[in-house]
């Protein structure tokens, strides 16, 4: 979990979402439906977006889980986090952790996505505040910064 190992004894029927929030106190992962319909609880498992509300920790034994708390690098915000803050992509902020992680999965796989590809990658993450526009702007900007950093 975020580069750390956590031995855990929890009821097997507690979802990853519940364990993150209630047992590991990582409340950055949000929830809006618990049925896989809103995307707010998205985390990354081995780099792939996964809904923590529909995943059991036991199914993820030995795999690498990244939550929003693990995204900062050496105490500095990830380019996606800074870009979201700068571009107005965060209004109420409740969908933000899930969207940032979905966007990370996209940019890690496809460093220069088109706007349509970004929209498709985020199509499972509902946001009611922004109309998604500044979110797409932020992902574009973060992508550009990450490409710069790499080159």
């Amino acid at each position: 979990m975020n580069g750390e190992q956590h031995p855990l004894a929890v009821p097997v029927y507690k979802t990853l979402l519940e364990v993150l929030r209630e047992d590991l106190h990582l409340t950055g992962t949000k929830h809006g439906c618990e049925l896989g319909e809103c995307g707010a609880c998205t985390v990354l498992v081995d780099g792939e977006p996964v809904l923590s509300c529909l995943a059991l920790p036991i199914e993820l034994e030995g795999r690498e889980i990244l939550t929003i708390e693990g995204l900062m690098e050496g105490g500095r915000p990830h380019p996606l986090q800074s870009a979201f803050a700068e571009m107005g992509a965060v209004q109420c902020g409740y969908c933000t952790p899930g969207i940032v992680l979905s966007a990370k999965a996209l940019l890690d796989r496809n460093p220069m996505p088109t706007r349509q590809e970004i929209a498709e990658a985020l199509s499972g993450n509902l946001c009611r505040c922004t109309g998604y526009i500044q979110i797409l702007d932020a992902v574009e900007r973060a992508g550009a910064r990450m490409r710069e950093r790499r080159s």
Binding site: T27, P77, G93
Partner: peptide
């Protein structure tokens, strides 16, 4: 940027739940 934007991007902001 909004003054509370970055904490919302890092999971630091504490909502009621």
């Amino acid at each position: 940027p909004k003054i509370d934007a970055l904490p919302k991007c890092t999971g630091e902001t504490r909502y009621a739940d």
